[in-house]
Design a protein around this nucleic acid. Structure first.
Lengths: 207, 207
DNA sequence: ACCTGAACACCGTTCAAGT
DNA sequence: ACCTGAACACCGTTCAAGT
Protein backbone atom coordinates (compact mmCIF):
# COMPACT_ATOMS: atom_id res chain seq x y z
CA UNK A 1 0.00 0.00 0.00
CA UNK A 2 2.91 2.33 0.71
CA UNK A 3 4.02 1.53 -2.82
CA UNK A 4 0.58 2.43 -4.19
CA UNK A 5 0.57 5.71 -2.29
CA UNK A 6 3.99 6.61 -3.65
CA UNK A 7 3.01 5.86 -7.24
CA UNK A 8 -0.25 7.75 -6.91
CA UNK A 9 1.55 10.79 -5.52
CA UNK A 10 4.09 10.65 -8.34
CA UNK A 11 1.15 10.93 -10.71
CA UNK A 12 -1.10 13.48 -9.03
CA UNK A 13 1.17 15.31 -6.61
CA UNK A 14 0.78 15.83 -2.90
CA UNK A 15 -2.25 18.07 -3.34
CA UNK A 16 -3.91 15.42 -5.48
CA UNK A 17 -3.36 12.58 -3.04
CA UNK A 18 -6.54 11.71 -1.18
CA UNK A 19 -7.65 8.80 0.91
CA UNK A 20 -10.53 8.22 -1.45
CA UNK A 21 -8.31 7.98 -4.52
CA UNK A 22 -5.82 5.82 -2.68
CA UNK A 23 -8.59 3.44 -1.64
CA UNK A 24 -9.88 3.33 -5.19
CA UNK A 25 -6.43 2.38 -6.50
CA UNK A 26 -6.29 -0.45 -3.98
CA UNK A 27 -9.78 -1.68 -4.90
CA UNK A 28 -11.16 -0.84 -1.52
CA UNK A 29 -13.26 1.87 0.12
CA UNK A 30 -11.36 4.80 1.56
CA UNK A 31 -12.51 4.07 5.10
CA UNK A 32 -10.86 0.67 5.12
CA UNK A 33 -7.47 2.34 5.05
CA UNK A 34 -7.96 3.53 8.59
CA UNK A 35 -7.59 -0.04 9.73
CA UNK A 36 -3.98 -0.07 8.53
CA UNK A 37 -2.93 3.53 9.01
CA UNK A 38 -3.50 6.34 11.48
CA UNK A 39 -4.69 8.84 8.90
CA UNK A 40 -3.51 10.81 5.90
CA UNK A 41 -0.61 12.41 7.76
CA UNK A 42 0.66 8.96 8.52
CA UNK A 43 0.85 7.92 4.86
CA UNK A 44 2.39 11.23 3.76
CA UNK A 45 5.04 10.93 6.44
CA UNK A 46 5.77 7.40 5.30
CA UNK A 47 6.13 8.11 1.59
CA UNK A 48 8.30 11.17 2.20
CA UNK A 49 10.62 9.09 4.34
CA UNK A 50 10.64 6.44 1.61
CA UNK A 51 12.17 9.05 -0.71
CA UNK A 52 14.81 9.93 1.89
CA UNK A 53 15.65 6.26 2.05
CA UNK A 54 16.65 6.41 -1.62
CA UNK A 55 19.76 8.45 -0.90
CA UNK A 56 22.71 6.20 -0.09
CA UNK A 57 24.81 6.69 3.00
CA UNK A 58 27.98 8.66 2.24
CA UNK A 59 31.35 6.93 2.07
CA UNK A 60 32.89 7.49 5.51
CA UNK A 61 36.40 7.19 4.10
CA UNK A 62 35.92 10.23 1.87
CA UNK A 63 36.67 13.75 3.06
CA UNK A 64 33.95 15.58 4.99
CA UNK A 65 33.54 17.90 2.05
CA UNK A 66 33.06 15.08 -0.44
CA UNK A 67 30.62 13.33 1.86
CA UNK A 68 28.49 16.43 2.27
CA UNK A 69 28.71 17.30 -1.39
CA UNK A 70 27.71 13.92 -2.75
CA UNK A 71 24.95 13.44 -0.19
CA UNK A 72 23.50 16.84 -1.06
CA UNK A 73 23.60 16.03 -4.77
CA UNK A 74 22.04 12.59 -4.25
CA UNK A 75 19.27 14.14 -2.19
CA UNK A 76 18.77 16.78 -4.85
CA UNK A 77 18.32 14.10 -7.48
CA UNK A 78 15.87 12.12 -5.35
CA UNK A 79 13.78 15.27 -4.96
CA UNK A 80 13.91 16.05 -8.65
CA UNK A 81 12.42 12.60 -9.26
CA UNK A 82 9.79 13.02 -6.53
CA UNK A 83 9.22 16.77 -6.16
CA UNK A 84 6.31 16.38 -3.73
CA UNK A 85 8.76 14.93 -1.18
CA UNK A 86 10.93 18.07 -1.22
CA UNK A 87 9.33 19.57 1.84
CA UNK A 88 10.71 21.05 5.04
CA UNK A 89 8.11 19.67 7.36
CA UNK A 90 6.48 16.41 6.45
CA UNK A 91 3.86 15.31 8.96
CA UNK A 92 6.56 13.24 10.64
CA UNK A 93 10.32 12.85 10.43
CA UNK A 94 11.03 9.22 9.67
CA UNK A 95 14.03 7.01 10.37
CA UNK A 96 15.61 7.42 6.93
CA UNK A 97 15.78 11.17 7.33
CA UNK A 98 17.13 10.84 10.85
CA UNK A 99 19.90 8.58 9.55
CA UNK A 100 20.74 11.12 6.85
CA UNK A 101 20.96 13.86 9.48
CA UNK A 102 23.22 11.67 11.60
CA UNK A 103 25.54 10.98 8.66
CA UNK A 104 25.88 14.64 7.91
CA UNK A 105 26.57 15.61 11.51
CA UNK A 106 29.10 12.81 11.84
CA UNK A 107 30.93 13.94 8.70
CA UNK A 108 31.08 17.51 9.98
CA UNK A 109 32.31 16.39 13.37
CA UNK A 110 34.89 13.94 12.06
CA UNK A 111 36.08 16.59 9.61
CA UNK A 112 37.19 18.68 12.55
CA UNK A 113 34.65 21.49 12.28
CA UNK A 114 34.00 23.23 15.59
CA UNK A 115 30.75 22.19 17.23
CA UNK A 116 29.16 25.60 16.75
CA UNK A 117 29.95 25.59 13.04
CA UNK A 118 28.68 22.04 12.62
CA UNK A 119 25.47 22.96 14.41
CA UNK A 120 24.67 25.82 12.07
CA UNK A 121 26.08 24.12 8.99
CA UNK A 122 23.52 21.37 9.30
CA UNK A 123 20.60 23.78 9.17
CA UNK A 124 22.16 25.88 6.45
CA UNK A 125 22.80 22.93 4.15
CA UNK A 126 19.36 21.41 4.76
CA UNK A 127 17.71 24.74 4.06
CA UNK A 128 19.75 25.25 0.92
CA UNK A 129 19.26 21.78 -0.58
CA UNK A 130 15.53 21.62 0.09
CA UNK A 131 15.01 25.29 -0.68
CA UNK A 132 16.88 25.37 -3.96
CA UNK A 133 15.47 22.08 -5.20
CA UNK A 134 11.94 23.03 -4.26
CA UNK A 135 12.31 26.37 -6.00
CA UNK A 136 13.82 24.76 -9.06
CA UNK A 137 11.36 21.94 -9.60
CA UNK A 138 8.30 24.01 -8.78
CA UNK A 139 9.15 26.75 -11.23
CA UNK A 140 6.98 27.12 -14.28
CA UNK A 141 8.00 29.79 -16.74
CA UNK A 142 5.43 32.56 -17.16
CA UNK A 143 3.12 32.30 -20.11
CA UNK A 144 4.56 34.72 -22.64
CA UNK A 145 1.89 34.38 -25.28
CA UNK A 146 0.08 37.68 -25.56
CA UNK A 147 -3.63 38.14 -26.26
CA UNK A 148 -2.90 38.03 -29.99
CA UNK A 149 -1.19 34.64 -29.74
CA UNK A 150 2.28 36.01 -30.47
CA UNK A 151 5.19 35.60 -28.08
CA UNK A 152 5.82 38.58 -25.81
CA UNK A 153 9.28 40.02 -25.30
CA UNK A 154 10.28 39.44 -21.64
CA UNK A 155 10.88 43.16 -21.32
CA UNK A 156 7.31 44.08 -22.17
CA UNK A 157 5.93 41.20 -20.12
CA UNK A 158 7.78 42.29 -17.01
CA UNK A 159 6.86 45.89 -17.64
CA UNK A 160 3.18 45.01 -17.84
CA UNK A 161 3.30 43.79 -14.25
CA UNK A 162 5.91 45.84 -12.48
CA UNK A 163 7.04 48.76 -14.62
CA UNK A 164 10.58 49.43 -15.74
CA UNK A 165 12.67 46.45 -14.57
CA UNK A 166 15.56 46.08 -16.99
CA UNK A 167 17.75 43.72 -14.96
CA UNK A 168 14.86 41.37 -14.33
CA UNK A 169 14.01 41.29 -18.03
CA UNK A 170 17.61 40.47 -18.83
CA UNK A 171 17.58 37.75 -16.21
CA UNK A 172 14.51 36.11 -17.75
CA UNK A 173 16.26 36.28 -21.13
CA UNK A 174 18.95 33.98 -19.71
CA UNK A 175 16.51 31.21 -18.86
CA UNK A 176 17.25 28.09 -20.82
CA UNK A 177 20.78 29.12 -21.69
CA UNK A 178 22.11 29.21 -18.12
CA UNK A 179 24.05 25.97 -18.66
CA UNK A 180 26.11 27.76 -21.29
CA UNK A 181 27.40 30.33 -18.82
CA UNK A 182 30.30 28.12 -17.84
CA UNK A 183 29.49 27.76 -14.16
CA UNK A 184 27.82 24.36 -14.13
CA UNK A 185 24.43 23.83 -12.55
CA UNK A 186 23.02 26.52 -10.32
CA UNK A 187 22.51 23.99 -7.57
CA UNK A 188 26.16 22.98 -7.45
CA UNK A 189 27.30 26.58 -7.76
CA UNK A 190 25.43 27.54 -4.59
CA UNK A 191 26.36 24.35 -2.81
CA UNK A 192 30.05 25.04 -3.39
CA UNK A 193 29.68 28.59 -2.10
CA UNK A 194 28.44 27.12 1.16
CA UNK A 195 30.97 24.29 1.35
CA UNK A 196 33.90 26.60 0.53
CA UNK A 197 32.76 28.90 3.28
CA UNK A 198 32.57 26.04 5.74
CA UNK A 199 36.04 24.86 4.75
CA UNK A 200 37.43 28.18 5.91
CA UNK A 201 36.13 27.35 9.39
CA UNK A 202 38.26 24.22 9.71
CA UNK A 203 40.97 25.09 12.22
CA UNK A 204 44.51 24.46 11.09
CA UNK A 205 43.66 24.60 7.41
CA UNK A 206 43.48 28.32 6.73
CA UNK A 207 43.07 29.77 3.23
CA UNK B 1 -10.67 43.47 2.42
CA UNK B 2 -7.03 42.77 1.64
CA UNK B 3 -6.35 44.01 5.14
CA UNK B 4 -8.94 41.62 6.59
CA UNK B 5 -7.46 38.69 4.66
CA UNK B 6 -3.98 39.50 5.96
CA UNK B 7 -5.13 39.72 9.56
CA UNK B 8 -7.15 36.52 9.28
CA UNK B 9 -4.17 34.67 7.83
CA UNK B 10 -1.94 35.98 10.60
CA UNK B 11 -4.36 34.36 13.03
CA UNK B 12 -5.20 31.06 11.39
CA UNK B 13 -2.38 30.49 8.90
CA UNK B 14 -2.57 29.84 5.18
CA UNK B 15 -4.20 26.45 5.70
CA UNK B 16 -6.85 28.01 7.88
CA UNK B 17 -7.74 30.78 5.45
CA UNK B 18 -10.99 30.05 3.65
CA UNK B 19 -13.36 32.11 1.59
CA UNK B 20 -16.14 31.30 4.02
CA UNK B 21 -14.23 32.56 7.05
CA UNK B 22 -13.07 35.63 5.18
CA UNK B 23 -16.64 36.42 4.21
CA UNK B 24 -17.76 35.94 7.78
CA UNK B 25 -15.14 38.39 9.04
CA UNK B 26 -16.38 40.95 6.53
CA UNK B 27 -20.01 40.41 7.52
CA UNK B 28 -20.91 38.99 4.16
CA UNK B 29 -21.56 35.63 2.55
CA UNK B 30 -18.54 33.91 1.05
CA UNK B 31 -19.94 34.02 -2.45
CA UNK B 32 -20.08 37.80 -2.50
CA UNK B 33 -16.29 37.90 -2.49
CA UNK B 34 -16.23 36.60 -6.03
CA UNK B 35 -17.59 39.95 -7.16
CA UNK B 36 -14.38 41.64 -6.02
CA UNK B 37 -11.80 38.95 -6.53
CA UNK B 38 -11.03 36.21 -9.01
CA UNK B 39 -10.89 33.44 -6.42
CA UNK B 40 -8.87 32.25 -3.47
CA UNK B 41 -5.60 32.18 -5.41
CA UNK B 42 -6.10 35.83 -6.16
CA UNK B 43 -6.33 36.85 -2.51
CA UNK B 44 -3.42 34.63 -1.46
CA UNK B 45 -1.26 36.13 -4.20
CA UNK B 46 -2.23 39.60 -3.06
CA UNK B 47 -1.52 39.17 0.65
CA UNK B 48 1.81 37.45 -0.03
CA UNK B 49 2.85 40.37 -2.20
CA UNK B 50 1.70 42.73 0.54
CA UNK B 51 4.31 41.14 2.81
CA UNK B 52 7.00 41.57 0.16
CA UNK B 53 6.04 45.24 0.00
CA UNK B 54 7.08 45.57 3.65
CA UNK B 55 10.77 45.19 2.85
CA UNK B 56 12.31 48.55 2.00
CA UNK B 57 14.35 49.08 -1.14
CA UNK B 58 18.07 48.82 -0.44
CA UNK B 59 20.24 51.93 -0.34
CA UNK B 60 21.82 52.12 -3.82
CA UNK B 61 24.81 54.02 -2.46
CA UNK B 62 25.83 51.11 -0.24
CA UNK B 63 28.12 48.33 -1.45
CA UNK B 64 26.52 45.47 -3.34
CA UNK B 65 27.27 43.23 -0.40
CA UNK B 66 25.59 45.51 2.11
CA UNK B 67 22.58 45.92 -0.14
CA UNK B 68 22.13 42.18 -0.51
CA UNK B 69 22.78 41.55 3.13
CA UNK B 70 20.37 44.06 4.54
CA UNK B 71 17.66 43.18 2.03
CA UNK B 72 17.98 39.52 2.91
CA UNK B 73 17.75 40.29 6.61
CA UNK B 74 14.77 42.62 6.13
CA UNK B 75 12.98 39.94 4.14
CA UNK B 76 13.83 37.38 6.78
CA UNK B 77 12.23 39.56 9.44
CA UNK B 78 9.11 40.17 7.37
CA UNK B 79 8.71 36.41 7.01
CA UNK B 80 9.24 35.79 10.68
CA UNK B 81 6.36 38.14 11.34
CA UNK B 82 4.16 36.54 8.66
CA UNK B 83 5.39 32.96 8.28
CA UNK B 84 2.60 31.94 5.90
CA UNK B 85 4.03 34.35 3.32
CA UNK B 86 7.41 32.57 3.30
CA UNK B 87 6.63 30.49 0.27
CA UNK B 88 8.49 29.81 -2.96
CA UNK B 89 5.49 29.81 -5.23
CA UNK B 90 2.55 31.94 -4.26
CA UNK B 91 -0.33 31.70 -6.72
CA UNK B 92 1.07 34.78 -8.44
CA UNK B 93 4.23 36.87 -8.29
CA UNK B 94 3.17 40.42 -7.53
CA UNK B 95 4.80 43.77 -8.29
CA UNK B 96 6.46 44.14 -4.89
CA UNK B 97 8.33 40.90 -5.31
CA UNK B 98 9.32 41.81 -8.86
CA UNK B 99 10.73 45.10 -7.62
CA UNK B 100 12.73 43.26 -4.93
CA UNK B 101 14.13 40.93 -7.60
CA UNK B 102 15.09 43.90 -9.74
CA UNK B 103 16.88 45.62 -6.84
CA UNK B 104 18.88 42.50 -6.10
CA UNK B 105 19.88 41.96 -9.72
CA UNK B 106 20.82 45.63 -10.09
CA UNK B 107 23.02 45.49 -6.98
CA UNK B 108 24.78 42.39 -8.29
CA UNK B 109 25.29 43.95 -11.70
CA UNK B 110 26.48 47.32 -10.42
CA UNK B 111 28.79 45.54 -8.02
CA UNK B 112 30.70 44.18 -10.98
CA UNK B 113 29.74 40.52 -10.67
CA UNK B 114 29.92 38.64 -13.98
CA UNK B 115 26.53 38.06 -15.56
CA UNK B 116 26.71 34.29 -15.06
CA UNK B 117 27.47 34.70 -11.36
CA UNK B 118 24.72 37.26 -10.91
CA UNK B 119 22.27 34.95 -12.63
CA UNK B 120 22.91 32.05 -10.29
CA UNK B 121 23.43 34.23 -7.23
CA UNK B 122 19.88 35.47 -7.48
CA UNK B 123 18.43 31.98 -7.30
CA UNK B 124 20.83 30.84 -4.62
CA UNK B 125 20.06 33.77 -2.31
CA UNK B 126 16.32 33.51 -2.86
CA UNK B 127 16.41 29.80 -2.15
CA UNK B 128 18.50 30.31 0.96
CA UNK B 129 16.49 33.16 2.47
CA UNK B 130 13.12 31.57 1.87
CA UNK B 131 14.35 28.08 2.65
CA UNK B 132 16.11 28.89 5.89
CA UNK B 133 13.37 31.15 7.17
CA UNK B 134 10.67 28.66 6.30
CA UNK B 135 12.56 25.88 8.01
CA UNK B 136 13.21 28.02 11.05
CA UNK B 137 9.75 29.38 11.66
CA UNK B 138 7.98 26.13 10.89
CA UNK B 139 10.07 24.09 13.29
CA UNK B 140 8.34 22.77 16.36
CA UNK B 141 10.54 20.86 18.79
CA UNK B 142 9.55 17.22 19.22
CA UNK B 143 7.42 16.38 22.22
CA UNK B 144 9.86 14.93 24.70
CA UNK B 145 7.37 14.01 27.38
CA UNK B 146 7.31 10.23 27.72
CA UNK B 147 4.25 8.12 28.44
CA UNK B 148 4.89 8.56 32.15
CA UNK B 149 4.81 12.37 31.87
CA UNK B 150 8.54 12.75 32.56
CA UNK B 151 10.89 14.47 30.14
CA UNK B 152 12.80 12.13 27.85
CA UNK B 153 16.52 12.46 27.26
CA UNK B 154 17.09 13.43 23.60
CA UNK B 155 19.36 10.41 23.26
CA UNK B 156 16.65 7.93 24.17
CA UNK B 157 14.05 9.83 22.17
CA UNK B 158 16.14 9.72 19.01
CA UNK B 159 17.02 6.10 19.65
CA UNK B 160 13.36 5.17 19.92
CA UNK B 161 12.84 6.31 16.34
CA UNK B 162 16.08 5.70 14.51
CA UNK B 163 18.44 3.65 16.62
CA UNK B 164 21.91 4.72 17.68
CA UNK B 165 22.35 8.31 16.46
CA UNK B 166 24.80 10.00 18.85
CA UNK B 167 25.60 13.09 16.78
CA UNK B 168 21.93 13.83 16.21
CA UNK B 169 21.21 13.52 19.92
CA UNK B 170 24.04 15.92 20.67
CA UNK B 171 22.69 18.31 18.06
CA UNK B 172 19.25 18.33 19.66
CA UNK B 173 20.93 19.02 22.99
CA UNK B 174 22.21 22.30 21.56
CA UNK B 175 18.73 23.62 20.77
CA UNK B 176 17.98 26.74 22.70
CA UNK B 177 21.60 27.45 23.50
CA UNK B 178 22.76 27.98 19.93
CA UNK B 179 22.99 31.76 20.45
CA UNK B 180 25.69 31.13 23.02
CA UNK B 181 27.97 29.44 20.52
CA UNK B 182 29.52 32.73 19.50
CA UNK B 183 28.56 32.66 15.83
CA UNK B 184 25.50 34.91 15.86
CA UNK B 185 22.24 33.82 14.33
CA UNK B 186 22.19 30.75 12.13
CA UNK B 187 20.51 32.75 9.41
CA UNK B 188 23.27 35.33 9.21
CA UNK B 189 25.96 32.69 9.48
CA UNK B 190 24.70 30.95 6.35
CA UNK B 191 24.00 34.20 4.56
CA UNK B 192 27.60 35.31 5.08
CA UNK B 193 28.90 31.99 3.78
CA UNK B 194 27.06 32.70 0.54
CA UNK B 195 28.00 36.38 0.32
CA UNK B 196 31.66 35.70 1.08
CA UNK B 197 31.67 33.12 -1.66
CA UNK B 198 30.13 35.55 -4.12
CA UNK B 199 32.67 38.21 -3.18
CA UNK B 200 35.44 35.93 -4.39
CA UNK B 201 33.84 36.04 -7.84
CA UNK B 202 34.26 39.79 -8.20
CA UNK B 203 37.01 40.27 -10.78
CA UNK B 204 39.88 42.48 -9.72
CA UNK B 205 39.30 41.97 -6.02
CA UNK B 206 40.91 38.62 -5.37
CA UNK B 207 41.43 37.30 -1.84
C1' DA C 1 -23.63 46.60 -9.50
C1' DC C 2 -23.75 43.89 -5.65
C1' DC C 3 -25.47 40.20 -2.67
C1' DT C 4 -27.73 35.62 -1.66
C1' DG C 5 -29.17 30.57 -1.23
C1' DA C 6 -28.88 26.29 -3.09
C1' DA C 7 -26.15 23.20 -5.27
C1' DC C 8 -21.98 20.60 -7.07
C1' DA C 9 -17.86 18.20 -6.55
C1' DC C 10 -14.69 17.43 -3.62
C1' DC C 11 -12.02 16.76 1.19
C1' DG C 12 -10.55 13.86 6.12
C1' DT C 13 -12.53 11.32 9.54
C1' DT C 14 -15.99 8.88 12.85
C1' DC C 15 -18.94 5.33 13.91
C1' DA C 16 -22.27 1.84 14.06
C1' DA C 17 -23.19 -2.01 11.38
C1' DG C 18 -22.05 -5.86 8.95
C1' DT C 19 -18.97 -10.44 7.69
C1' DA D 1 -9.81 -8.75 12.16
C1' DC D 2 -11.24 -6.41 8.33
C1' DC D 3 -14.53 -3.97 5.40
C1' DT D 4 -18.68 -0.99 4.45
C1' DG D 5 -22.32 2.81 4.05
C1' DA D 6 -24.00 6.73 5.93
C1' DA D 7 -22.97 10.76 8.07
C1' DC D 8 -20.45 15.02 9.80
C1' DA D 9 -17.92 19.07 9.21
C1' DC D 10 -15.51 21.22 6.24
C1' DC D 11 -13.53 23.04 1.38
C1' DG D 12 -13.69 26.27 -3.58
C1' DT D 13 -16.69 27.56 -6.95
C1' DT D 14 -20.93 28.11 -10.19
C1' DC D 15 -25.20 29.87 -11.17
C1' DA D 16 -29.77 31.39 -11.22
C1' DA D 17 -32.32 34.39 -8.49
C1' DG D 18 -33.06 38.38 -6.09
C1' DT D 19 -32.43 43.85 -4.83
Amino acid sequence: MLQAALELTDEVGLEGLSMRKLGQRLGVEAMSLYNHVDGKDDVVGAIVDAVWSLVPAPDPSASWREQLRSSAIDLHHAFVRHPWACVFFPPSVGPARLRAMESMLRALHDGGLPAAVAYHAHHVIDAYVIGFTHQMSGYVPPDLTGPDGKELDPKVYVQSIGGELPHLAEHIDLHGVEESLGLGSGFEFGLDLVLDGLARHVPGEPR
